[in-house]
């Protein structure tokens, strides 16, 4: 086994996904198969190989720190499930 059900449960917590017991069972089998497959990367010796994060070599993209029009509060909030004034409202965080 590449991954146990307990590990899958832990990853689901990290990913903020409330998975049902039967989903956890199915996910464990599927992730195990996929992780088994990706193990083939270990056939390759990558000692001393630089990782590629982006295919096009680029330096940092800088711009002038200039004030420009932005989307505005009304537009930014138009899809919000719940708002309060100019804020996004969420369930209580602090007891």
């Amino acid at each position: 086994m590449k991954i146990s059900r307990a590990e899958v449960e832990h990853v689901a917590r990290l990913a903020r996904l409330a998975l049902q017991p039967e989903e956890l069972d199915a996910m464990t089998g599927q992730m195990d198969a996929i992780l088994g497959y990706v193990d083939k990367l270990n056939e390759l010796d990558t000692e001393g190989i630089e990782p590629t994060a982006h295919a096009v070599p680029m330096e940092n993209a800088f711009r002038e720190d200039a004030v420009k029009p932005s989307i505005g509060v009304e537009r930014a909030q138009q899809n919000a499930p719940e708002t309060d004034g100019s804020c996004f409202k969420v369930p209580k965080v602090i007891e």
Binding site: L41, N42, L44, T46, I49, E50, P51, T52, A53
Partner: peptide, 9 residues
């Protein structure tokens, strides 16, 4: 990281 190195290859 391993995958990113293989990506280079």
């Amino acid at each position: 990281l391993k995958a990113q190195k293989v990506r280079t290859l």
